[in-house]
């Protein structure tokens, strides 16, 4: 890691471990995951349902429901502060202020009986010394910033009066109101139509550039990753299996799971491709976290698996400059899938 990069780091997560205690036993939702986010950088976390991407985000926010979940290991450092050692009152001063989060379904995150303007005002007055008049003016300014037309009028409205895209814009306005160093967006556009998704993604990337916010974008959509991120983490069954700069990852994926994901995506422009051409599928399904195989969790679905994969978990190794993969055979994989 170069010196410049170290100085710029706003979030540093090391060996994070989050477990859940359930009736069917203990499972490791996040198992030894490390990453960092720099100022103004977008880090994408990709994976399928149950891979631990959302729990990673909730662990960073200290929002994992306890019980049944608990962060049992590792460190989370935001702007030099060790978040895992803070008590709840101290955490509240950081959430919504130094870091905030937006979710997939804006309607469930907004208070249905409070005006949009009041909800943003609430955040501002909680974290900053402001009169209610100043806070309201700032709230309207935030709505203008996220390009909501007629922000003065919209601030007076309730969430149900806004469309899905507008609600997500209001959520972004609220999340960014205190100019946080870090924004976590968990599938922010999954519930939206594709034309609205394009609007919201462009907005997030644009604001992030203007404000210098670090962004963690959690998604299952490799298209969204390619269009927004600078660095990417691929997760599978609670573990980080690959990390690389976005161009590297798409040009030269090193983990068979990443390669499988890319190959199983139908491409929009399939000119000349025969309609009945088969997609490359990954056989089988994601294993249950309570019953993981001893070696690599992906081995049962992997066409390249050898005996060693089934016996020993491959450590995350640097396979190329700044490109990490947890696979015994990563070095043999060259080029796009």
């Amino acid at each position: 890691m170069s010196e410049a990069r170290k100085d710029d780091t706003i979030l540093d997560v090391k060996n994070l471990q989050t477990v859940f205690f359930t009736n069917s036993g203990l499972f490791r939702a996040v198992d030894d995951v490390s990453f960092n986010v720099r100022r103004g950088e977008t880090l994408a976390i990709v994976g399928e349902s149950g891979c631990g991407k959302s729990v990673t985000a909730l662990s960073v926010m200290r929002l994992v429901p306890d019980p049944p979940g608990r962060v049992v290991g590792g460190t989370v450092t935001l702007e030099g502060t060790d978040l895992l050692s803070l008590d709840e009152a101290e955490m509240r001063k950081i959430r919504g202020n130094r870091m905030s989060m937006i979710f997939q379904e804006p309607m469930t995150s907004l208070n249905p009986v409070m005006r949009i303007g009041d909800q943003i005002t609430e955040v501002l007055r909680l974290h900053q010394e402001m009169t209610s008049r100043e806070a309201w003016a700032k709230a309207v300014e935030m709505l203008r910033l996220v390009r909501i037309p007629e922000p003065d009028r919209r601030a007076q409205e309730y969430p149900h009066q806004l469309s899905g895209g507008m609600r997500q814009r209001a959520m972004i306005a609220m999340a960014l109101a205190c100019r946080p160093a870090l924004l976590i967006a968990d599938e922010p556009t999954t519930a939206l139509d594709v034309t609205i998704q394009a609007q919201i993604l462009a907005l997030i990337v644009d604001l992030q550039k203007t404000l210098g916010t670090g962004l963690i974008l959690i998604t299952h959509d490799l298209g969204v990753v390619a269009q927004t991120a600078q660095r990417v983490i691929v997760m599978y069954a609670g573990k980080k299996v690959e990390e690389a700069a976005v161009e590297d990852l798409f040009e030269n994926p090193k983990h068979p799971y990443t390669r499988g994901l890319m190959a199983s995506m139908p491409a929009v422009i399939s000119f000349g491709a025969k309609t009945d051409a088969r997609l490359n599928e990954i056989p089988g399904m994601v294993p249950s976290l309570t019953n993981l195989p001893p070696g690599c969790a992906f081995a049962p679905r992997c066409s390249l698996a050898i005996d060693r994969c089934r016996a020993e978990y491959p450590p995350l190794q640097e396979v190329d400059g700044d490109h990490f993969a947890a696979c015994w055979r990563a070095a043999e994989l060259v080029g796009a899938p």
Partner: peptide
């Protein structure tokens, strides 16, 4: 509007505004 899974083809420019 469909995000293309190719980082070299970045083009995040929404083609239509509004809902």
């Amino acid at each position: 509007s469909v995000p293309v899974a190719d980082p070299k083809a970045k083009k995040l420019a929404p083609m239509i505004d509004g809902d």
